[in-house]
Nucleic acid binder design. Structure first.
Lengths: 223, 223
DNA sequence: GATTGAAAGAATGTCAGACAATTGGGTTGA
DNA sequence: TCAACCCAATTGTCTGACATTCTTTCAATC
């Protein structure tokens, strides 16, 4: 069965672009957790009308990337430690499954892509470009999730990771954490390449545990 | 640490109510999968303006309860068998975890609530009110998920189940399926009451497998 | 001095109306 | 029969407006 190719060229709407822009801004830590997003300011900044902006904000609210309190408007959620822990727990559940499946079904071609993305992260980890680190690390996981054979698993995982992007970005800005991540990711890659499901899950579990600890630390120290 | 009680009374906005109404309408199968939702009609029906409606639609889109194709507008997703299967797989992953955790940590009080909801479902299963069946079954799971100790797990699970509500409603309308569900749910309850995590997970797995088969059947036959 | 109360300013929730762009379907013509 | 074309319906987006609700400031009171 050949993969279905969507020939329809979906016109991108202002609303979609707005959502993407805001999401990216949130990911890159442009807004402080807890800070409010004033609609009129965002409208001016993005050059769109308030109705359009509000549509975009509703999308982000449903993704849990922003809070909207009636009569107080949108703001960046300030995750509690409990919430963060809960997210990491579910992420682990999903990610172990995804990595395990991926190890059993990934194609040679995609495996090569995965290797390339690991190299890209390796380079970023040595550089000072912390945004590049976050991006390349995300690519690595994207490929794994895209090859787990379950698009829903992929989608839910992406949604969860998005919600903790703030702390991931912070911890990734520490060179030590990036280097440590690199070793863990390589271990995951090796296990996947060897088709060793058990090892892949184990390596992944270790990676998440460390990432969680790093995020927690960065949360507590506020660095 | 006492549980935080939110004293702030959140005013309900039109937008929230609109989302709730539409969500409920979708759950109860009021719209045929694939059918389009014309904005002007919905506005008239709901008695609200188009901007407000569109905000609500964006929320539902982000929840994956409706599709919105640019320039064609919103419509009810027609799930493919592959998507449904993928959803059930992830649901199983989450639900087994939730049931297992619940069996270890639920309080006597909540256990009693769970028993009550099981009784309510038992009554509904014998009646002809298929909507009541869906509702009471959902209550049963709500209690389990609320007692798994991880609100994110609960949230993600709810989102997934919402997306297959259409087929669940259809299969629940068959009295045979309801009775079978009852037996499976009782088994889950007994395992939880006994604090037997392994048995709880096993019973839950069986239940999901059957529910999935029923949903698949109802999808294929279109009944 | 601290607390309460009131008033002004800012921001949100919602609406009405409008217009260009796109889609889908039916009609015409070859 | 099939292709091109046109039109009604629908969506995407904007402007502008107004009532409601929050926030803050400032004064008055205890």
């Amino acid at each position: 069965m050949p993969p279905e190719i969507n020939l329809r060229i979906l016109p991108r709407t202002v609303q979609q672009e707005t959502v993407d822009k805001l999401r990216l801004a949130i990911f890159s830590g442009m807004f402080e957790p807890g800070s409010r997003l004033v609609e009129s300011h965002l409208c001016a900044e993005l050059g769109i009308s308030r109705p359009s902006l509000r549509e975009a904000l509703r999308s982000l609210q449903a993704e849990r990337l922003i809070d909207i309190v009636p009569n107080r408007g949108p703001s960046i959620p300030a995750l509690t430690l409990e919430e963060m822990t809960a997210i990491y727990e579910v992420r682990e559940l999903l990610e172990l499954e995804a990595v395990g499946r991926c190890s059993q079904r990934i194609s040679k071609d995609q495996l090569h892509e995965l290797e390339k993305s690991l190299s890209a992260f390796e380079e970023a980890a040595s550089s000072n470009d912390s945004l590049a680190r976050v991006k390349t690390a995300a690519d690595f996981y994207s490929i794994i999730l895209a090859n787990c054979g379950n698009p829903i698993l992929e989608e839910v995982h992406r949604g969860l990771v998005a919600r903790i992007s703030f702390f991931r970005a912070r911890s990734m800005s520490l060179k030590g954490r990036a280097q440590s991540s690199l070793a863990e990711m390589r271990e995951i890659f090796e296990a996947i390449a060897a088709g060793d499901e058990k090892a892949a899950r184990k390596a992944s579990k270790k990676h998440i545990a460390k990432a969680k600890a790093a995020a927690k630390l960065s949360m507590e120290t506020g660095t």
